[in-house]
Write a protein that binds this DNA or RNA. Structure first.
Ligand SMILES: [Mn+2]
Ligand SMILES: [Mn+2]
Ligand SMILES: [Mn+2]
Ligand SMILES: [Mn+2]
Lengths: 154, 154
DNA sequence: AAACAAAGTTAGCCTCGCCTAACTTGCAGC
DNA sequence: GCTGCAAGTTAGGCGAGGCTAACTTTGTTT
């Protein structure tokens, strides 16, 4: 156990690293410094530095020149941020946003959504998926119907 | 006009300062360094420093020891972030989240929501407000109805 | 008008997260 | 088993955005 670690909430940077490391492991079987760097558009030197910090924080095991593996704590955190990422992406896709906007916004928002909010958006998403008509109105930017104004006009 | 300023997007910190300054001006008529500091839980020294930066960026006019006023550009930015804040707050309230969670999440998310997403969430919010039944299901965390399972059970 | 407190400023420092340049290690190919 | 390149690391540095401590200015009080 990592003692005397006050367990501050992980920073956005830490979450982004862990998320990407897990993704690399899941798709390539391993996560090398060079791959992480490429994938995050960050220098190898910066990755090495962060990896050493994450090792110190007990989120992964790192052996110089040899590679790294996520610890249980690290993988848990990685799975958690991944879940937030997917949920928000799913939600924004429902709203009809373009892929680029979605990616940009999700990449930032994912770090600020607390568990209760995750749960609420999951619930909302599930409900919305059974309301295609409502979603259609959202996507078309339909204003709330007002008496005396055509809502289907061009 | 502020020439030779490449106009990087405002940082989260800058947006938080501007939002708070506008709020102070709207409620007290002015925004002193000490008030901004108190309101953001930041030292007066840090506020002075940031205010000087914002002056340099043309977002406010600052006279040493004398006070500050937002420029047109600054007020525009302030109104914009304020709008995002209110929209997200409104949206999360609809989902039935508690005030504390809402404040925490909004304070972070507001800096990462692009115009298209703002528009989509506005649209969604408007639609949701006319769907009290759906919202009730969201708030109660109802799973999508499944045949053979009671959805109203305790 | 002198003194005092509150507000504001400056100086110096820190952490985070990034960078480049230079060096070291590991691994293939020969 | 050299050798050369790719991968990895270290060293040094930078900007953002915080902090505290010490100083200055302003405004109020007497
Ligand atoms: Mn991210
Ligand atoms: Mn992500
Ligand atoms: Mn904020
Ligand atoms: Mn805000």
């Amino acid at each position: 156990m990592q003692k005397s670690t006050p367990k501050r909430p992980a920073s956005s940077a830490v979450e982004d690293y862990l998320e990407r490391i897990l993704e690399l492991i899941n798709t390539k079987g391993y996560a090398r410094v060079v791959d992480i760097a490429e994938s995050l558009s960050i220098s190898q030197a910066s990755v090495t530095n962060m990896v050493q910090r994450l090792d110190g924080d007990g989120l992964l095991k790192y052996e110089k020149y040899r590679g790294l593996v996520l610890t249980t704590a690290g993988e848990e955190l990685a799975r958690n941020i991944t879940h937030r990422h997917h949920l928000l992406t799913d939600f924004l896709q429902l709203l009809g946003l373009d892929a680029q906007t979605i990616h940009h916004d999700v990449e930032g928002m994912e770090h600020h959504v607390s568990p209760a909010t995750v749960h609420a958006i999951e619930s909302l998403t599930a409900q919305l998926k059974r309301q295609p008509a409502l979603l259609e109105r959202v996507r078309s930017g339909a204003a709330p119907a007002r008496v005396g104004r055509a809502t289907t006009a061009l």
